[in-house]
Design a protein around this nucleic acid. Structure first.
Lengths: 158, 158
DNA sequence: CTGCCAGTTCAAGTCAACTTGAGGTCAAGG
DNA sequence: CCTTGACCTCAAGTTGACTTGAACTGGCAG
């Protein structure tokens, strides 16, 4: 099988068809041709989608990810960029660690009200001063059909 | 000084006036009265704002935070909720750690192309399988005046 | 008394990453 | 041949947390 259609790409990658169209429009992936109306993708698009997922997970925006591909379509990943992102992650991790410890303490704290717990108040000051930094929890996707499974990579093979 | 006006609240908390109005509309904070048109806040609003900042930093949504206040306005923080959030944070941290290590390796990897680096490919598979999970980097606020330092409480005045 | 300017309201805009809806097309199966 | 259903396009909607713009108000310095 040379090319895969959008449904298959969606199934194999766990990425929705609508997202694939969106990515194509954004220039993140390219379809190779059509069969009737249907887009046909080179199976290599799956690697590319994995790369995109990786970038997203690392905190890159789609625009940043788009810039990681050379005009010829091959990945052109700047190592300094990776290192910088690793640093950024490091800082985030440190903050989250502090946060988690504070939350744990607050959860177990014997003080009658959190406002009377010194640890909690320290945390509060840290948050107020911006030391903890910003962070946004990602809402879960509403339909993560193939996402949670352990073996979605080669679903029903054949 | 009994009450503070919105400008002062903004200056002291580092939260923009527009945000304070937004929070009031959402029921997260309450103004105590007016002087002319101007809202007056009880200085305790600053604690409350710190609490809100803390919650945001921990990954709670504004709605979740709103639910952390009893109808009388005093914090009513569920310890189990804190513990659960700490757990969530823990999981996030673990993923980010893996991510960071992968990025570091990729940044230093001697393979000619990232696609030929085993570590990178392993990371890629993890991302594709959803094992790494989703995350969104928060874009920095365009003006974080009171955030980083003590001084510079000078908004864009005049 | 008169401006000024910082405040006010309300609606609408922004941003990112998608999703959804309406209306259309086409290849294959009965 | 005709229906069916999956795909197509394009525009608009969604979500969360705010920000911005337009039009307005009112306390206070001069």
């Amino acid at each position: 099988m040379r090319d895969i259609d959008i449904a298959e790409a969606a199934r194999l990658s766990g990425v929705r068809a609508s997202t694939l169209r969106f990515y194509e429009e954004k220039g993140l992936i390219a379809s190779h041709g059509r069969r009737g109306l249907r887009r046909l993708f080179d199976p290599a698009v799956l690697d590319r989608l994995a790369l995109i997922a990786l970038g997203r997970a690392a905190g890159f925006s789609l625009d940043e990810i788009a810039r990681m591909f050379a005009p010829d379509g091959r990945p052109r990943i700047d190592r300094r960029m990776l290192a910088a992102k690793a640093e950024e992650l490091e800082r985030t991790i440190r903050k989250l660690n502090a946060m988690r410890d504070g939350l744990r303490h607050a959860a177990a704290c014997p003080a009658p009200s959190h406002m009377e717990c010194p640890t909690f108040r320290r945390l509060l000051r840290a948050a107020a001063s911006g030391a903890i930094g910003e962070r946004k929890a990602r809402r879960p996707p509403r339909k993560s059909f193939a996402a949670t499974g352990r073996e979605q990579g080669r679903a029903r093979g054949s």
